[in-house]
Design a protein around this nucleic acid. Structure first.
Lengths: 194, 194
DNA sequence: CGCGACGTTGATTTGCCTCAACGATTGTGG
DNA sequence: CCACAATCGTTGAGGCAAATCAACGTCGCG
């Protein structure tokens, strides 16, 4: 089971490529190994790639003027990561995207992407589906932040992503959920109802 | 200046259609007039259309189990509105989308959209650009909610969308910004800096 | 071994909410 | 066309959820 196995499967969930197309795709993308604590995106720099996570774990976060970190994204295997804003518009990023574990990525840049979309138009559909899902996801997250208490948000998260609780340090989860480490700790260690 | 003038201009910002394509597009979409306080999306129902606002103003909101409204979207002329989640997946919506003024929409349903995308592939690009912009926008909003105080969020909003302050009732803006009407009122009437 | 990253716990503070009452404006039916 | 209701914004008192500040224990790693 090589690096591309799950990548192909993931695409096959939404569009069906011919063997020739698949081969062409694989020939164009680039496999990159990233060490823990390494950054693949940094503020001031333009985000060059969109990256599919083969193995590993990443988070994207912003550091505000008070020096507080705010986590936008926690991603594991079979997700795409990037600063889509910076990648799409080719503007300097404001975010850090950091590997939380040693990771393997499949990457493409704009040149490769445009070529692939031209040669394999079905990929437009694949990326469209991903974009729509991302939109739905972000909308739900905004709603959750507006309408739920810190405790509700945590329990919802814990139920939905139990594996992340084990892989990701708690202060990052806290910052993802919009609360302090201390408060999250208190939630976890209180009697509580489910 | 007919209903389609700005619609065409908006598309032309991102892709260039031939006169024939433009005509075909116009022949397929549907112009709808909506009265103030009318709903174009309601919970339990599948969202049938994506709609371009020719004139008017809409908001999308969710009512939580405690009966509180949470505004996801405030939209005016030249924006697309829909419950994209419900429209894209053809699942029942959870949202209300309500006209805040008498409005005129240009609408397309899935059948029309698929046909248009097949006949005018350039529209894929148009919608892709819109989707990416929406993604960037939602991401910024999540960051603002995570990192800014209610007062900062309000002043930021007021500076960025001064026209909305006049068109939209304040309790809706408050719910969009994630605070109560009363608190927003207090922010507005305090000395404050900036 | 010693330092830094991580989590926990308690005391205190505060940003924002809830509840409540009250003008002003809009709009609507008799 | 007026009266009354509904909608909208304002203001104040009191309360709570979550932040801040601070101190401490543990673990992993260089």
């Amino acid at each position: 089971m090589d690096d591309f196995s799950n990548f192909k499967k993931n695409i096959a969930r939404f569009v069906t490529l011919t063997p020739v197309e698949e081969e062409y795709l694989i020939s164009k993308v680039k496999v990159t190994h990233i060490r823990r604590r390494q950054f693949i995106v940094q503020p001031e720099f333009v985000c060059k790639y969109k990256s599919y996570i083969v193995t590993g774990c990443f988070r994207a976060y912003l550091v505000d003027s008070a020096g507080h970190e705010h986590t936008i994204t926690l991603s594991v295997e079979d997700w795409w990561i990037s600063d889509f804003n910076s990648y799409f518009l080719q503007e300097p990023s404001e975010l850090f995207v950091e590997a939380l574990e040693d990771s393997v990525l499949i990457q493409m840049d704009h040149v490769v992407e445009d070529d692939l979309l031209a040669k394999i138009p079905k990929l437009e559909i694949y990326f469209k589906v991903l974009a729509m899902r991302a939109l739905a996801f972000l909308q739900k997250r905004i709603l959750a932040n507006l309408s739920k208490s810190a405790e509700e948000r945590y329990h919802f998260f814990a139920k939905k992503y139990p594996h992340l609780l084990q892989r990701v340090p708690q202060h990052m989860i806290a910052s993802y959920l919009g609360m302090t480490t201390q408060f999250l700790s208190k939630i976890r260690n209180q009697p509580s109802k489910t």
